[in-house]
Amino acid sequence: MLDVSGLVAGYRANSVLHGVSLQIPDGKTIAVVGPNGAGKSTLLKAIMNVVRVTAGTVRFGARDIRGMPTERIARLGIALVPEGRGVFGSLTVAENLRLGLRAAGVAAGDGALSSVLDRFPVLRARLRMSAAGLSGGEQQQLVIARALLTAPRLLILDEPSLGLSPQMVDEIFDVIHGLRADGVTVLLVEQNATRAVDLADHTYVLVSGRIIAEGAKDHLLSGDRLAAAYFGAGPTRSSKESL
């Protein structure tokens, strides 16, 4: 479905990604893991053309989407849930959700909304609240719900568990499990490597802007392959914190 190859991207003169390639097949859950500063978020932003791509190709289905305006990529059916949530705090919960609905169209709106709200019952009670007033976990649910309302063909989640309590992390991973079961194609970027790898059909390990290992869960988790690839000389402080 999404086919990235030889991607070079970054800010101004500094490339963060040095030739990244990955494939996301239809209906699968793919994880990208890696330490802080590996370029995970940059990779996602490059896919969405938020960050400038200087070389490589990005194909979505049969289309070349490299260099397309971000909103057109979104309208083709890729929903990115950005790191740090990205709720619109000045909007109500309902307004946040309505922003997502634009793809579904007004007629389909109510049905789509209620089915998504079934998945996130906590939001239903808070529809008229200002989104800024939600807890961290609720905000994360809101942005995922909002992204789902765009009826994406590919859902990209950037660090969904970041900064959440362990209990909340469980909840979020339950939701991702649910999506997976429903056949939604998901690209999951996580520092919480073990859980991500455990969940995903296939995992890429990104370090310093390069994919240094990939494989299915059994392959990566056997022996110390993941730890060696991921942590290099040893666990960094930040990755330890997030684990």
Binding site: M48, V50, P69, T70, E71, A74, R75, A79, L80, P82, G86, F88, G89, S90, L91, E95, N96, L99, G100, R102, A103, R146, A147, T150
Partner: peptide, 17 residues
């Protein structure tokens, strides 16, 4: 309003810049 608060996230949702 969404674009005023966070233009990039709005575009990620398909809001036309």
């Amino acid at each position: 309003r969404a674009a005023a608060e966070n233009f990039t996230v709005a575009r990620l949702l398909g809001v036309k810049a």
